[in-house]
Design a protein around this nucleic acid. Structure first.
Lengths: 330, 330
DNA sequence: GCTCTCTTTGCAAGCGCTTTCGTACTGACT
DNA sequence: AGTCAGTACGAAAGCGCTTGCAAAGAGAGC
């Protein structure tokens, strides 16, 4: 089923059918209806691969995320998608599960599809990828990883400051034994976050921290917390790398019969919607996901010179809710 | 940058380059390395559109969901993706936001991409869509909507029985005033679920129910619950159309100073992971998402005759947790 | 009736790839 | 040396679409 069959049935040329399909050029209205009728009768659906091949400029952008299950990624994806859609672009998504070989495969897939722009909201990285992308000319935005180049924009969040605020705040509440819940310690940005915690802790002589890592899921947060709670003396505050794992931590604490925040305080990171729907509501650090999505759209679609090829750093504000409180006296 | 340039650089024909890329046919190992070198030097990435066009059979399946934010959809998507991936297929995803025109657009997009199979995990429907799909020959799986045809498989969950169990259970606990939290009341399957509640309620003369609807989000559940709580006398149990909205309900009840389950009981539906991570843990109805994903893969990829073109109904088991209890005495 | 300007349509050349078919080459075996 | 099977490669025909160019038709103004 192709253009030619439609053309034959409508007794016109393929060029005319194409013009009808794309609302381009001048087509007499009687011809148009005749063509549409043929399309309908034949249940014709244009082959998008052929259309792309035939040199029409790409109207799609690719978004790659590390973990589509984490609402943080999903929020950014959604912002990008709505921005892209309103600009007439469609977005294709890929998930990497934090695996760098999967990231490379996804990037190749996107390039193979000839996307107009590519956003990678990922924590993993392959050493050769930046170079491969740089030799290409398509605009790219990296979140969390990568280095700015002429066609590569970088978005970062000032984790150091954000985490610093968390640690300062907890220290001020009298906490001296911390537990850090992370995931994929081997990944640059995640490891960086852990180091940031260690550094921040290092500023206070009396502060100690244990760390544990598991998968980036509710259950992972739960298991990592279980591990941390097993050490004696047990930490009085659990600092989590993100909100999802923090919600997992809350569950484990509940199961252990520990009260939050009276016995143990918990902090998250990202400030996803769920942070306000768990109990107790999470003290966390807000990351402006809509702003990030906006920047991505700007650099991939509008090609604003102000953002392309630069590094943009977002600040991260502490949001105090109910999951943190003064350290227990003992 | 295309095959021809690579071929020229490696001093071979495009056919040979193609053979190298696809590991097909016989290519002398020295030629192979020469071609690979050229590919690397030119940073060549094959145009996937061209490849698809050139008649290679489709290796991708499409999955359309109503609301990617709802973990229920996401869980099914993930099962399908992992099944597809292990069969060498890639999956492309589309989100409809419960809008039927968006569903139609997404289906057209998938057909335009010539997917090998199509799964629609959606609650909305367009009257002409089934026909349009049926005139096509690609295998299709619908969840929740549609009617089985020769190339269309239908998966359903026995909501009637599942919801019936919820109502019976609550009645047995002494609840007589129910509130139902739904979303998109105008959509067939969702409306169906509400009707099922009304029917189940109808079996008990002394049982009453109010309904409220909002968006299918945490916040939507919260707002709908707020509405239900405003009526006097207030319901003693809130029955939610799914777990996400139920978690929103929990939040609203907490804010209103009502205890769950002592003052008000809450039930969800789906049994997503989050149902065990909220507080109190949700009484809900389990829907076997992995089984659903499996069926989808079977009918779209393996083409098992046992499942293609049929209707498959899953049963839904009640899972009692902590969010439900005896109705308050007053 | 004739020219001029739009409008409407068709022809055909690609887009970048796969794949069939045919040719040339390579050894191995008579 | 001659035959044959197998290996290695190239030429070229599409896949289904868009689009530049040219041609034909249609009014409008004289």
């Amino acid at each position: 089923m192709n253009l030619e069959q439609v053309a034959r049935r409508a007794a016109v040329s393929t060029a005319t059918v194409s013009r009808v399909l794309n609302n381009a050029g001048h087509v007499k209205s009687s011809t148009r209806t005749r063509v549409m009728k043929a399309i309908e009768e034949l249940n014709y659906h244009p082959n998008l691969h052929a259309r792309s091949l035939a040199g029409v400029k790409s109207r799609s952008i690719g978004v790659i995320v590390s973990n589509i299950e984490n609402p943080f990624f999903l929020d950014i994806y959604k912002t990008v998608e709505s921005g892209a859609r309103s600009a007439g672009y469609e977005v294709i998504m890929a998930n990497t599960d934090y695996r760098s070989e999967q990231l490379v495969a996804s990037v190749r897939l996107m390039i193979g599809r000839r996307v107009a722009g590519l956003a990678a909201i990922v924590s993993e990285m392959d050493p050769n990828l930046i170079d491969e992308l740089n030799r290409n000319s398509i605009p790219v935005v990296f979140y969390d990883v990568g280095t700015p180049r002429n066609n590569i924009t970088n978005i970062r969040v000032n984790y150091r400051r954000g985490m610093g605020r968390v640690i300062d705040y907890l220290y001020g509440l009298g906490h001296r034994r911390l537990g850090f819940v992370g995931h994929h310690a081997s990944l640059g940005p995640i490891n960086e976050r852990m180091k940031v915690v260690l550094d921040a802790v290092g500023r206070y002589a009396s502060l100690q921290v244990n760390t544990a890592a598991d998968t980036d899921t509710l259950d992972g947060g739960r298991r990592a917390t279980r591990l941390l709670l097993a050490s004696t003396p047990r930490p009085t505050a659990i600092v989590c790398v993100n909100d999802i794992m923090a919600v997992g931590a809350l569950r484990e604490l509940r199961d252990s019969g520990l009260r939050v925040p009276e016995d143990v305080s918990v902090t998250g990171f990202d400030n996803v919607t769920l942070a306000q729907f768990c109990y107790p509501e999470l003290t966390t650090v807000h990351i402006p996901r809509d702003g990030i999505g906006q920047i991505i759209c700007d650099s991939l679609i509008s090609h604003k010179e102000t953002v392309v090829g630069r590094e943009i750093v977002f600040d991260a504000e502490l949001v105090v809710r109910d999951s943190t409180g003064p350290a227990p006296l003992t």
